[in-house]
Protein backbone atom coordinates (compact mmCIF):
# COMPACT_ATOMS: atom_id res chain seq x y z
CA UNK A 1 0.00 0.00 0.00
CA UNK A 2 1.26 3.44 -0.91
CA UNK A 3 1.76 6.14 1.71
CA UNK A 4 2.49 9.80 1.56
CA UNK A 5 3.28 10.92 5.07
CA UNK A 6 5.31 13.60 6.73
CA UNK A 7 7.65 12.74 9.58
CA UNK A 8 8.37 15.77 11.74
CA UNK A 9 7.35 17.96 8.81
CA UNK A 10 9.49 16.16 6.20
CA UNK A 11 7.55 14.53 3.41
CA UNK A 12 8.15 10.84 2.67
CA UNK A 13 6.64 8.60 -0.01
CA UNK A 14 6.87 4.89 0.56
CA UNK A 15 5.12 1.56 0.16
CA UNK A 16 4.36 -1.06 2.74
CA UNK A 17 4.11 -4.55 1.31
CA UNK A 18 2.64 -7.32 3.38
CA UNK A 19 4.53 -10.50 2.47
CA UNK A 20 2.65 -13.06 4.42
CA UNK A 21 3.18 -11.40 7.80
CA UNK A 22 6.54 -9.89 6.94
CA UNK A 23 6.41 -6.22 6.10
CA UNK A 24 8.64 -4.70 3.49
CA UNK A 25 9.04 -0.97 3.49
CA UNK A 26 10.14 0.56 0.19
CA UNK A 27 11.22 4.15 -0.13
CA UNK A 28 12.89 4.96 -3.44
CA UNK A 29 15.76 2.53 -3.80
CA UNK A 30 15.77 1.60 -0.13
CA UNK A 31 14.13 -1.56 1.10
CA UNK A 32 13.90 -2.93 4.59
CA UNK A 33 11.99 -5.89 5.96
CA UNK A 34 10.43 -6.04 9.40
CA UNK A 35 8.33 -8.41 11.40
CA UNK A 36 5.96 -7.20 14.04
CA UNK A 37 4.34 -8.37 17.23
CA UNK A 38 1.44 -6.41 18.63
CA UNK A 39 1.18 -6.18 22.38
CA UNK A 40 -1.92 -4.07 22.63
CA UNK A 41 -3.61 -1.24 20.82
CA UNK A 42 -0.92 1.38 21.38
CA UNK A 43 2.12 -0.82 21.66
CA UNK A 44 3.88 -2.93 19.03
CA UNK A 45 7.23 -4.62 18.81
CA UNK A 46 8.97 -4.12 15.49
CA UNK A 47 11.94 -6.33 14.64
CA UNK A 48 14.32 -5.43 11.82
CA UNK A 49 16.45 -7.67 9.57
CA UNK A 50 19.25 -7.72 12.15
CA UNK A 51 16.88 -8.95 14.86
CA UNK A 52 16.98 -5.59 16.57
CA UNK A 53 13.68 -5.05 18.35
CA UNK A 54 12.00 -1.70 18.85
CA UNK A 55 9.31 -1.36 21.51
CA UNK A 56 7.07 1.16 19.76
CA UNK A 57 4.23 3.26 21.09
CA UNK A 58 1.84 4.56 18.44
CA UNK A 59 -1.33 6.58 18.85
CA UNK A 60 -3.55 9.05 17.07
CA UNK A 61 -2.31 12.57 17.54
CA UNK A 62 -3.24 15.91 16.00
CA UNK A 63 -4.80 14.54 12.80
CA UNK A 64 -1.99 12.07 12.44
CA UNK A 65 0.02 9.77 14.64
CA UNK A 66 2.57 10.01 17.35
CA UNK A 67 5.20 7.28 17.37
CA UNK A 68 7.55 6.87 20.32
CA UNK A 69 10.54 4.59 20.91
CA UNK A 70 14.12 4.83 22.20
CA UNK A 71 13.31 8.10 23.97
CA UNK A 72 12.25 9.74 20.71
CA UNK A 73 8.83 11.04 19.78
CA UNK A 74 7.93 11.44 16.09
CA UNK A 75 4.94 13.33 14.70
CA UNK A 76 3.62 11.63 11.58
CA UNK A 77 0.93 13.21 9.46
CA UNK A 78 -0.81 12.73 6.18
CA UNK A 79 1.20 14.68 3.61
CA UNK A 80 -1.51 14.62 0.95
CA UNK A 81 -3.75 16.94 2.94
CA UNK A 82 -2.96 20.66 2.74
CA UNK A 83 -3.69 21.69 6.27
CA UNK A 84 -1.05 19.44 7.76
CA UNK A 85 1.59 21.87 6.57
CA UNK A 86 5.20 20.88 6.24
CA UNK A 87 5.28 21.47 2.53
CA UNK A 88 5.20 24.89 0.95
CA UNK A 89 4.16 25.73 -2.52
CA UNK A 90 7.71 26.61 -3.50
CA UNK A 91 6.82 28.88 -6.40
CA UNK A 92 6.10 32.58 -6.00
CA UNK A 93 6.04 34.45 -2.71
CA UNK A 94 6.26 32.63 0.57
CA UNK A 95 5.21 34.39 3.74
CA UNK A 96 7.06 33.04 6.75
CA UNK A 97 5.09 33.24 9.97
CA UNK A 98 6.22 32.93 13.55
CA UNK A 99 5.83 29.40 14.90
CA UNK A 100 5.87 30.62 18.51
CA UNK A 101 5.25 33.77 20.48
CA UNK A 102 8.48 35.51 21.23
CA UNK A 103 10.74 38.41 20.54
CA UNK A 104 12.93 39.17 17.54
CA UNK A 105 16.51 39.27 18.77
CA UNK A 106 18.35 39.81 15.50
CA UNK A 107 17.60 40.44 11.86
CA UNK A 108 20.45 39.41 9.57
CA UNK A 109 18.97 40.40 6.22
CA UNK A 110 17.26 43.40 4.72
CA UNK A 111 14.70 43.81 2.00
CA UNK A 112 15.91 43.00 -1.52
CA UNK A 113 18.76 40.82 -0.21
CA UNK A 114 19.38 37.64 -2.12
CA UNK A 115 19.30 34.57 0.08
CA UNK A 116 20.10 30.90 -0.23
CA UNK A 117 17.83 28.09 0.87
CA UNK A 118 18.44 27.44 4.58
CA UNK A 119 20.13 30.79 5.16
CA UNK A 120 19.32 32.42 8.50
CA UNK A 121 17.12 35.47 8.15
CA UNK A 122 16.45 36.33 11.77
CA UNK A 123 16.63 35.10 15.36
CA UNK A 124 13.44 34.60 17.34
CA UNK A 125 13.71 34.21 21.09
CA UNK A 126 10.98 31.98 22.51
CA UNK A 127 10.81 29.81 25.63
CA UNK A 128 14.08 31.51 26.63
CA UNK A 129 15.77 29.91 23.62
CA UNK A 130 17.11 31.57 20.52
CA UNK A 131 15.78 30.10 17.29
CA UNK A 132 17.16 30.92 13.88
CA UNK A 133 14.43 31.33 11.31
CA UNK A 134 15.72 30.33 7.90
CA UNK A 135 14.68 30.93 4.33
CA UNK A 136 12.77 27.94 2.89
CA UNK A 137 14.17 28.61 -0.58
CA UNK A 138 16.71 30.48 -2.65
CA UNK A 139 15.36 33.86 -3.66
CA UNK A 140 15.00 37.51 -2.76
CA UNK A 141 13.65 38.97 0.48
CA UNK A 142 10.61 40.99 -0.57
CA UNK A 143 9.56 42.19 2.82
CA UNK A 144 10.70 42.03 6.42
CA UNK A 145 7.74 42.66 8.71
CA UNK A 146 9.61 42.83 12.02
CA UNK A 147 12.65 44.51 13.47
CA UNK A 148 14.97 43.74 16.35
CA UNK A 149 13.02 43.97 19.58
CA UNK A 150 9.58 43.35 18.05
CA UNK A 151 7.38 41.02 20.10
CA UNK A 152 5.46 38.62 17.92
CA UNK A 153 2.43 36.41 18.42
CA UNK A 154 2.16 32.95 16.89
CA UNK A 155 1.38 33.21 13.17
CA UNK A 156 2.61 36.80 12.98
CA UNK A 157 4.24 37.53 9.62
CA UNK A 158 8.03 37.61 9.85
CA UNK A 159 9.26 37.97 6.29
CA UNK A 160 8.38 37.26 2.68
CA UNK A 161 10.74 35.58 0.26
CA UNK A 162 10.22 35.25 -3.47
Amino acid sequence: MRFSLSIDGEKREFDILDNDGEFELRSGEKRKTFTINKLWSRNILIKDENNKVYNVFVDKFEEGHCVFFKGRSFAIKDATSRKTGGGFDMDGEIVIKSPLPGQIKKVFKKENDEVEEGESILVLEAMKMENEIKSPKKGVIKKISVKEGTSVDPQAELFTVE
Binding site: M1, F3, F14, F34, V67, F74
Partner: peptide
Protein backbone atom coordinates in the same frame (compact mmCIF):
# COMPACT_ATOMS: atom_id res chain seq x y z
CA UNK B 1 18.22 8.19 11.98
CA UNK B 2 17.30 6.39 8.78
CA UNK B 3 16.64 3.14 10.64
CA UNK B 4 14.57 5.01 13.16
CA UNK B 5 12.66 6.76 10.44
CA UNK B 6 11.76 3.47 8.80
CA UNK B 7 10.50 2.04 12.08
CA UNK B 8 8.45 5.16 12.80
CA UNK B 9 6.94 5.21 9.31
CA UNK B 10 6.10 1.52 9.45
CA UNK B 11 4.36 1.89 12.81
CA UNK B 12 2.28 4.83 11.62
CA UNK B 13 1.59 3.18 8.27
CA UNK B 14 0.33 -0.03 9.86
CA UNK B 15 -1.77 1.87 12.30
CA UNK B 16 -3.48 3.91 9.62
CA UNK B 17 -4.04 0.79 7.49
CA UNK B 18 -5.89 -0.72 10.40
CA UNK B 19 -7.85 2.42 11.07
CA UNK B 20 -9.02 2.49 7.50
CA UNK B 21 -9.77 -1.21 7.48
CA UNK B 22 -7.10 -1.85 4.88
Amino acid sequence: PEDYEFVALLAAGLRSMEMNGN
